[in-house]
């Protein structure tokens, strides 16, 4: 993954112009800001996929309703939702994250908002509260809001569960403060009623998978269901990637995963012990200081999501860092 230098920097602009950045081959959008491409080189080419030095241009119609799903459990759907959601909020976009995991909701825990969830969608449907009362605004980033679909012990009336989420999206569009830019739906594992409910209002999907065959099979199945349901914009995030195991051929590489699933890559998240720490703390990775490797990868994935972009190059191997003459002395 490559980060470009600032556009104002002459050095960076030189890099920008010579770094061979073709338009995204898979997802074209007029709103997506693409840098000019003076000339193109034949393959293989490595595209600069992230420009930290400018705000990403929001592509597509708002609100963008994105469902984050996987099929298999424990691959990092909720972690991805929390981190991508807060990254989007940090990038300046208003985000509503809906925890549609009816039975086993955890998004509130990851965000550290578990003590502030008083009302859920079930209460909204029953008329116990209004929608704006059920939205939990994050105090760290006020343009991030959480909406839980139900409390752990309550049952969702599934008869109009999917419709209820569609109503929610419509209601969020008509809010007085304006429609949110992103509505992220954290999908439950499996392809049960919860999955059907969660994918109902979505226009695009982010498939989270890990580089192992069990996860890949479920991911392929879920991708098929999403495509059958009419969701065509599906990108994947490969989570818990270990370059050392890939090098030792103990783990499938990201390119292998992509070859098996045939999906565009939104991000590659390396395995990071900091994920567990941040989960336990209720503090998403992307807010860590100093930033962690996984946090940076989530942030880049969010950046690409905004621009409806996808990765054109992946990290395959770790190189030993070149050390200077004085490295022996700690230099």
């Amino acid at each position: 993954m490559i980060s470009l230098q600032p556009l104002t920097n002459p050095k960076a602009s030189a890099l920008y112009s010579s770094s061979l950045i073709p338009p995204n081959p898979f997802f074209h959008s007029l709103k997506t800001l693409k840098p000019p491409t003076p000339y193109l080189k034949p393959f293989p080419r490595i595209q600069s996929i992230l420009q930290y030095n400018r705000k990403p241009q929001l592509a597509g119609e708002t609100p963008r309703v994105v469902v984050i799903t996987s099929g298999k459990g424990g691959v990092g759907k909720t972690t991805t939702t929390a981190n991508v959601g807060l990254s989007l909020a940090r990038l300046g976009f208003s985000v509503v994250a809906i925890d549609a995991d009816v039975g086993l909701r955890n998004l509130d825990l990851l965000l550290g908002l578990e003590n502030r969830v008083n009302y859920t969608v079930v209460e909204v449907l029953n008329g116990d509260c209004r929608l704006d009362q059920a939205l939990v605004r994050d105090k760290r980033w006020s343009n991030f809001e959480l909406l839980c679909i139900s409390k752990p012990r309550s049952k969702l009336p599934i008869g109009f569960g999917g419709k209820a989420l569609t109503w929610l999206v419509e209601a969020l569009k008509d809010r007085e403060e304006g429609a949110p830019d992103f509505i992220l739906i954290d999908c439950p594992a499996g392809i049960d009623a919860g999955f059907i409910t969660a994918i109902t209002p979505a226009n695009e999907a982010v498939l989270v998978t890990t580089p192992d065959i069990t996860s890949l099979r479920d991911a392929d199945r879920v991708t098929g269901l999403l495509e059958c349901d009419g969701i065509r914009d599906i990108k994947m995030i490969v989570n818990r990637v270990r370059t050392d195991m890939i090098r030792g051929e103990d783990m499938m590489s990201v390119l292998d995963v992509q070859e098996m699933l045939g999906l565009a890559l939104l991000g590659v998240i390396p395995e990071d012990a900091e994920v567990i720490r941040s989960t336990n703390r209720g503090y998403p990775l992307v807010l860590n200081k100093p930033p962690t490797l996984a946090g940076l990868a989530f942030e880049q994935a969010a950046w690409r999501l905004v621009e409806q972009d996808s990765m054109q190059a992946v990290m395959v191997e770790e190189e030993p860092k070149k050390r200077g003459w004085f490295s022996f002395f700690g230099g």
């Binding site: 980060s3 992230l50 190059a313």
Partner: peptide
Amino acid sequence: MVKVGKSNSTVEMCGRVYKLAPVTL
């Protein structure tokens, strides 16, 4: 924390240098 190599084929993230491979899909 993210630096691009001069040859544009490596990236340094959090002090580690990674090789980059192009996506061929």
